[in-house]
Amino acid sequence: MKDKKLIVTGVIIFLIIATFPFWYNRGKAAPMPELELTAKAKAAKVCVRSTEYMRADHMQLLDKWREKVVREGDRIYVSPSGKQYNMSLSNTCLDCHSNKAQFCDRCHDYASVRPYCWDCHLDNSKEKT
């Protein structure tokens, strides 16, 4: 095992590189984003589902919506509380949350996800940034 030294050095270098992000970001956790609600959203009090559900699962809900609207043509969502909504990202969600930059984007940036919904669906924001 004359290569022992070499191998050990290699392993150490690998470990350092692999754990680099943890070292580098130590103690520097980004603050939780603060989401702003528009007056309309505040007045409505509840979203189509509970806040907890929306925060955790809005993407699954949107996915169900798009499947239904696009492929089956069912366009009305009846929430568990019995209220009806038009299943539309641009025209229902963004009607209330008409501040995409202070609402959607802040969280998406924080979680570092880039949903490409907006490549097609128009950002209907009334309050442009």
Partner: peptide, 12 residues
């Protein structure tokens, strides 16, 4: 029963 539903509009 208390769950969500997705339906077609009445005017469709």
């Amino acid at each position: 029963k208390a769950k969500e539903q997705m339906i077609r509009g009445d005017k469709a």
